[in-house]
Design a protein around this nucleic acid. Structure first.
Length: 568
RNA sequence: UGGGGCGUAGUGCAACGGCAGCACACCAGACUUUGGAUCUGUGGAUCCUGGUUCGAAUCCGGGCGCCCCAGCCA
């Protein structure tokens, strides 16, 4: 946690509400919590919640607890709790040892339930799940009371005890709150508080319990036990607030204030654990940390930085309006951050061999290159130049379109930090039509790329000496979906129908500066004129692998695009 | 047709009865040994409708539209 984080957090309605509570004396301290269920990996939508939960606590000099809402052993696993903790730390937040679990409170929660049973406010119901649904009524019609609703306190106590003792199979009975089957708010129509689950074992409590509280019966009380003042959550829980209020009032325990905000939605991706799991299980991506995934581990592997993500969350703001944020904002902030810190290098993605015909055979010379024009402290490095070099195929055109500044027959171009060269000819494969080799001459007077005669050379291209280049694999990523909002699929389609078939392009035989082969996994570089790249987790010096984090803005692509679209 | 919530440039967020502003996106230009970065500039919004008020995005009434809720998921 850093200091500037809180000061950069913009004002919003939640902050105002907390200020009001402090002013009016409703609370005299601030405590929040981030409550993930350990049933999947964190994604950027969670990052919003994390930044708000931890950020608000920090803004007001309070604390933010990490609490796992682990009330459903069927879906949860330790695999996820470890990953969640790692991701929160990576994002830049720390719960200072306050790592709690709803399962820590199972006994307390059980006692709470007992209290409601004794007060005649809860009962054991023998109806099946299907029957409970039928009895619940509909959105417009009131529900019916269960025939078991009026059991005596003694019978309820006995049955609930026996549920805990494991005398009944899964689904045989549940404990329900006795509220109002005719309530217009369906959450108040005698919601289920406890259900029986014998298997699997709980990841923390093992086989200690065979009854588990529902989220609705656990969350508010867990907040209460922890003295959470502000329970910040998704809009979806707005309807549940009256239920939490009811529990807290009947239990006569500390009452947190719940404030709901709209979850984050991002264009061209999907932010739903259920859908993300489908992408992983269906093999549409290579795992939760696939760089195309909007998960925090995926973004980390892709090369997004925690700073950029935090800035993004701050820029996006907090409100109650449903939103769909343009992913280009995130990309902009990633570039902004990386621009300041990523070392520049030259990497040729689709190599095209260039022979400098008037350069002496076997000669190799060393040229000075700047590591980061945005940061003089990054210094310089030496790059080798020789008779044969590689340039990108994009940088040569046999027939250059208007405004094309790069290499073409008879044209001059500057090799970055190298020489000005002129294209004198090329070799074309007569059967495939592919350009196989370009022949150029260099101007010895232009070492370093300077033209002493003041002549204008518009284009500057990147290159790598064939003599020293190393091969690398580069994974180019594009958006995962072809439409801005894949969750809104049209009739008869699912979000899977909008997967972008070109979201991953693996380039092999790319040519990189030799020093880059030893780059540390996770480190960031800018391949000049191409984009920001990150050394992949699986990269080794023998087999370097880079992930495209985000491409550089490509004005030329835009110009060329509009040229093509013009009917001429 | 029940209940809850939300409507401000293309997108997201401000403006809390007093000149509707910021960021991204878009468009144009300057600069440039990255067609990057940087700098400058243009265009573009208060859902509709009554009312209160000197004055309304803001307060009140009435519409309209969108989202969420009928798990023994969270």
């Amino acid at each position: 946690m850093t200091q500037e984080l809180s000061s950069s957090l913009p004002g919003n309605f939640i902050r105002e509400a907390i200020e009001e509570d402090l002013r009016t004396g409703r609370f005299n301290y601030v405590r929040t919590r981030f409550p993930p269920e350990p049933n999947g990996y964190l994604h950027i939508g969670h990052a919003k919640a994390i930044c708000i939960d931890f950020g608000m606590a920090q803004t007001f000099g309070g604390q933010c607890n990490l609490r796992f809402d682990d009330t459903n052993p069927v879906k949860e696993d330790v695999e996820y709790v470890d990953a969640i903790k790692e991701d929160i730390h990576w994002l830049g937040f720390d719960w200072e040892g306050r790592e709690y679990y709803a399962s820590d409170y199972f006994e307390q929660l059980y006692q709470f339930a007992l209290k409601l049973v004794r007060k005649g406010k809860a009962y054991v119901d023998d109806l099946t799940a299907d029957q409970i649904r039928e009895y619940r009524g509909t959105l417009t019609e009131p529900g019916k009371e269960s025939p078991y609703r009026h059991r005596s306190v003694e019978e309820n106590l006995d049955l609930f005890q026996r549920m805990r003792n494991g005398e009944f199979p899964d689904g045989a009975r549940v404990l329900r709150a006795k509220i109002d089957m005719a309530s217009p708010n369906i959450n108040l129509r005698d919601p289920v508080m406890y259900r029986i689950i014998h298997t699997p074992q709980h990841h923390r409590t093992g086989n200690q319990w065979c009854i588990y509280p529902m989220y609705d019966f656990a969350h508010g009380q867990s907040d209460s036990i922890e003295g959470v003042t502000h329970s910040l959550c998704d809009l979806a829980y707005e309807d549940h607030r009256p239920l939490y209020d009811w529990f807290l009032n009947e239990l006569e325990i500390f009452h947190s204030r719940q404030i709901e905000f709209a979850r984050l939605n991002l264009t061209y991706t999907i932010l739903s654990k259920r859908y993300l799991k489908q992408l992983v299980d269906g093999g549409h991506v290579h795992g939760w940390d696939d760089p195309r995934m909007p998960t925090l581990c995926g973004m980390r592997r892709r090369g997004y930085t925690p700073e950029a993500i935090r800035n993004f969350i701050n820029q996006v703001g907090v409100a109650k309006k449903e939103n769909l944020v343009d992913i280009s904002l995130l990309e902009y902030l990633v570039r902004e951050d990386l621009n300041k810190r990523a070392l520049r290098v030259m990497g040729v993605l689709n190599p095209l061999k260039v022979v400098i015909t008037n350069y002496p055979d076997g000669q190799v010379e060393s040229l000075e290159a700047i590591n980061n024009p945005e940061d003089p402290a990054a210094g310089t490095r030496q790059v080798e130049f020789s008779k044969v070099i590689y340039i990108d195929q994009d940088d040569f055109r046999e027939e250059p379109p208007p405004k094309y500044f790069r290499l073409a027959p008879g044209r001059e171009v500057r090799l970055r930090y190298g020489y000005i060269i002129k294209c004198e000819g090329f070799v074309k494969n007569s059967t495939t039509g592919e350009i196989e080799e370009v022949h150029c001459t260099f101007d010895p007077q232009t070492k370093g790329g300077y033209a002493p005669d003041g002549r204008k050379v518009q284009g500057t291209i990147h290159w790598v000496s064939a003599h020293s280049a190393r091969d690398a694999e580069v994974r180019m990523y594009d958006r995962l979906f072809t439409v801005p909002d894949p969750s809104r699929a049209e009739e008869g389609k699912s979000f899977l129908d909008y997967l972008n078939p070109n979201s991953l392009t693996v380039l092999k035989g790319c040519k990189i500066e030799p020093g880059l082969a030893n780059a540390i996994p996770g480190s960031h570089y800018q391949f000049e004129r191409k984009g920001f790249f990150c050394v992949d987790l699986d990269s080794t010096p023998d087999r370097p692998i880079f992930n495209l984090t985000v491409p550089l803005r490509d004005t030329w692509a835009k110009i060329e695009g509009t040229q093509k679209n013009k009917p001429d």
